[in-house]
Design a protein around this nucleic acid. Structure first.
Lengths: 101, 101
DNA sequence: AAATCATTTCGTTTTTTTGCGAAATATAAA
DNA sequence: TTTATATTTCGCAAAAAAACGAAATGATTT
């Protein structure tokens, strides 16, 4: 019987990133922000998306938490932009997953 | 005020695929199966992974449900393999997401 | 026919996620 | 200083995901 393994950090991290992408609203936001020099405000998004303000705020918080986006306060707005380093890191993770050994 | 959109099918599908990848155990399984000509049995996995049989079975079911893997019955075992078409499709989805417009 | 083996399904519990509206915060304008 | 605006946090409810053990299934061997 093979030994029970601890799941490798690499795999845990990939799953974490996938979780951040596992809701359509979050994918929508990231797609929007990953365009050239694209940033946006919470208000822009809430007008487009079929969810309430507080719900949207939760999704933004999650994306901020995993580091994929960052919010720059620009009163009275908060300008959200992609964190390009993290985005690249995520891209690499998925590339590696899909590039068979 | 911009119009509330229905989330595009492409985005919903990407989120669905990401959800399938949002648990470390499922990432582990897919990584294992995506090696060259790699297949395995539930029993192999349960020996390696720190979860019970029925829990593993649930994860396999989910991966089957989204079409990423398929089980070929080979009594008294069930041989699980990657569904290569779907895997390629998933790869494309993430490629598209990460390839800015 | 009974026992065995690999795996799944069922029933249940716990935890996490999603969603909302109301209230709070923080800033700017009147 | 009151009012308005943009956004978040809080408190809650509903839904979904994760996990387990026990029982069921389906095929094989004794």
């Amino acid at each position: 019987m093979a030994k029970k393994i601890e799941l490798p950090e690499e795999i845990v991290e990939t799953a974490k990133m996938a979780k951040a992408l596992s809701h359509p609203v979050r994918v929508y936001i990231l797609k929007k922000l990953s365009g050239f020099d694209a940033c946006c405000y919470s208000g822009d998004l809430v007008d487009e998306l079929p969810i309430g303000r507080s719900t949207l705020s939760q999704h933004l918080k999650e994306l901020k938490y995993v580091g994929l986006i960052q919010g720059e306060t620009e009163p009275p707005f908060i300008k959200y932009c992609l964190n390009n380093e993290k985005w690249t890191e995520a891209k690499k993770m998925f590339n590696q997953l899909f590039t068979e050994a």
